[in-house]
Computed example of a mutant assay.
Amino acid sequence: MTVRSLPFDRRGSSAAEFALVLPLLILLLFGIIDTGRFFWELNRSEKATQMGARMAIVTDPVSPDLVGASYVSGTIKAGDVIPANQLGTVKCTSTGCTCETAPCPSGGGTVDSAAFNLIVARMAKMNPLIAANNVVIRYSGSGFGYAGAADETMDVQPLVNVQLQNMQFRPIALLGFGGWNLPNASATLTAEDSSGSISN
């Protein structure tokens, strides 16, 4: 083959075209896989919060101040239904509980670590990457419950919201060099017996 005939030689054209298209094909393939993985992780987060909320409404409350709170006052007598506005929003994380919206039960903002860890452990069965710092639990007034209950459970039956936040998604198409936070997942249920450490 002479130098003059080289520009007209077509024997390697298929290989050159394939080499140009292959990276785009691989990127498209991994993009499709990552899209499926993203929605899988999103669904797992939502199911984990639902499991956490179910656990939270049937076991001991994370905020011990809710158990000892009395709602008997000048306008509410023992046995009366507790209005929703008698409990604001108590926000609990693994480090403590704070009053997000007043009124809240008085107390030191302590958190029942055993109760909190039970909820996190239940959620981690759905997604093992869930850690305590990813979970936020809120209690707010629901309009259920009777003032002056004689037992050692909560008088009020609050709405219990379990939120999962700051969960990372790392696409394989970026080879682990990047990622982003999944949207926060949240589930809310009304408290049931709120006593004990076992859930179905």
Rank of each mutant, 00 (worst) to 15 (best):
residue 27 L to V: 13
residue 27 L to I: 14
residue 28 L to P: 13
residue 28 L to Q: 14
residue 29 L to C: 15
residue 29 L to D: 12
residue 31 G to P: 06
residue 31 G to I: 02
residue 31 G to A: 15
residue 31 G to S: 15
residue 32 I to T: 09
residue 32 I to K: 06
residue 32 I to Y: 04
residue 34 D to C: 11
residue 34 D to M: 11
residue 35 T to K: 01
residue 35 T to D: 00
residue 36 G to F: 02
residue 36 G to E: 03
residue 37 R to W: 12
residue 37 R to N: 13
residue 37 R to I: 10
residue 37 R to M: 15
residue 39 F to Q: 02
residue 41 E to M: 10
residue 42 L to S: 08
residue 44 R to E: 09
residue 44 R to Y: 08
residue 45 S to Y: 04
residue 45 S to G: 14
residue 45 S to Q: 09
residue 45 S to W: 04
residue 45 S to N: 11
residue 46 E to C: 10
residue 47 K to G: 08
residue 47 K to V: 09
residue 47 K to S: 09
residue 48 A to F: 07
residue 48 A to I: 08
residue 48 A to R: 12
residue 48 A to D: 06
residue 48 A to L: 09
residue 49 T to H: 07
residue 49 T to L: 10
residue 49 T to P: 10
residue 50 Q to L: 15
residue 50 Q to H: 14
residue 51 M to Q: 15
residue 52 G to C: 13
residue 53 A to D: 08
residue 53 A to M: 11
residue 54 R to Y: 10
residue 54 R to I: 06
residue 55 M to Y: 14
residue 55 M to D: 08
residue 56 A to I: 12
residue 57 I to R: 10
residue 58 V to S: 13
residue 60 D to L: 07
residue 61 P to D: 02
residue 61 P to A: 05
residue 62 V to S: 12
residue 62 V to L: 13
residue 63 S to P: 09
residue 63 S to N: 15
residue 63 S to M: 12
residue 63 S to W: 05
residue 64 P to G: 00
residue 65 D to Q: 12
residue 66 L to S: 06
residue 66 L to Q: 06
residue 66 L to P: 05
residue 67 V to W: 04
residue 67 V to G: 04
residue 67 V to N: 04
residue 67 V to F: 00
residue 68 G to F: 02
residue 68 G to I: 03
residue 69 A to E: 01
residue 69 A to F: 01
residue 69 A to N: 01
residue 70 S to N: 05
residue 70 S to E: 02
residue 70 S to C: 04
residue 70 S to K: 08
residue 70 S to V: 03
residue 71 Y to N: 03
residue 71 Y to F: 02
residue 72 V to Q: 00
residue 72 V to G: 00
residue 73 S to C: 05
residue 74 G to E: 05
residue 74 G to D: 01
residue 75 T to I: 07
residue 75 T to G: 06
residue 75 T to N: 01
residue 75 T to M: 01
residue 76 I to S: 06
residue 76 I to N: 00
residue 76 I to V: 08
residue 76 I to M: 03
residue 77 K to N: 13
residue 77 K to C: 11
residue 77 K to S: 14
residue 79 G to W: 02
residue 79 G to L: 09
